[in-house]
Nucleic acid binder design. Structure first.
Lengths: 157, 157
DNA sequence: AAGAAATAGTCAATCAAGTTGACTATAATA
DNA sequence: TATTATAGTCAACTTGATTGACTATTTCTT
């Protein structure tokens, strides 16, 4: 087994750098496609609004932020044309946040780019190593979160 | 080769989650040791202030933020007793930011905790897998940054 | 050596993304 | 039915960043 030169960086720094590399590449490419007004924070929100839409409370729980913060983000994304507020079908207090056509375009573009990034990693380190990498990271995330994947899918500092 | 169940998370999400797991654990444990006033942003700065101290400009470049932002962070860390501003030995405009005794205690505690986290990962996935994981992440970070490790060691969104 | 340009740092104002607290309207429960 | 809980918004504040303006030095160009 040959061991190539590996930097002196600790694992946490490596994770930080590789995460920010990925997220930066994603948003640079989204920007080139005309989705420059979506910032990383918004990406996580769009991801959570599925076919049926989502309520503000659901988004807040998913993102791990307050409903007030969600409300402001929705203001921004609505103004930018990515989402719309619709009446909740059964609860007159509530609102459904749904993707607009442009919102769907952005989500699909994001998925495509992430897929391409992953494909490039496969070219780079091979499918087996990528698979191992994902397995190991999954294990470690689960271990750090009392045996289950966290429900909040956003970096929480 | 057996492939265990792996979540449907994409790589970028996994990196995000594993990074925030690590950084959260680090700061929870720092907090228990009485370093609760150090937030993740500050950790990166302390790391950069080595034996000889550093100038504000050096810190700004290292962290990828403006010198004004550094100045404010130094205000905070000075007030909290982790660093001190000293005269620059040759440049009367400049100041050297140096660690106080408490600053060194925090840095050493941080290194110890990161080391322990890494040890636990070795127990969890084995030394070989951890080595591979680090090699792969290093490769990918280098590939994403025009062939070299980035000089900025902080997540940039 | 003198004058011009660059640099290190700070101050002030602003922005972005979050927070807490107060409020309205509706829904659920006792 | 009266009370309590919930969904969402508004307003004020906090934190960590930004840009722009300024001072004091240093370095570069004649």
């Amino acid at each position: 087994m040959t061991h190539e030169v590996v930097s002196e960086l600790n694992l946490t720094s490596l994770l930080s750098l590789s995460f920010s590399s990925s997220i930066n590449e994603l948003h640079e490419r989204l920007s080139e496609l005309g989705f420059g007004d979506i910032r990383p924070v918004h990406g996580y929100m769009l991801k959570c609004i599925t076919l049926n839409g989502a309520t503000g409370i659901e988004l807040a729980e998913f993102l791990g932020i307050t409903k007030q913060a969600v409300s402001k983000m929705v203001d921004y994304l609505e103004k930018s044309g990515y989402v719309m507020r619709d009446n909740h079908p059964t609860d007159k207090r509530g609102k459904m946040i749904i993707l607009t056509e442009r919102g769907w375009l952005a989500v699909r573009a994001k998925e495509k780019i992430l897929h391409e990034i992953e494909e490039r990693w496969i070219k780079n380190i091979g499918a087996e190593r990528l698979q191992m990498l994902k397995e190991d990271l999954t294990k470690l995330v689960i271990e750090a979160n009392e045996g289950k994947l966290p429900t909040t899918v956003r970096p929480v500092w």
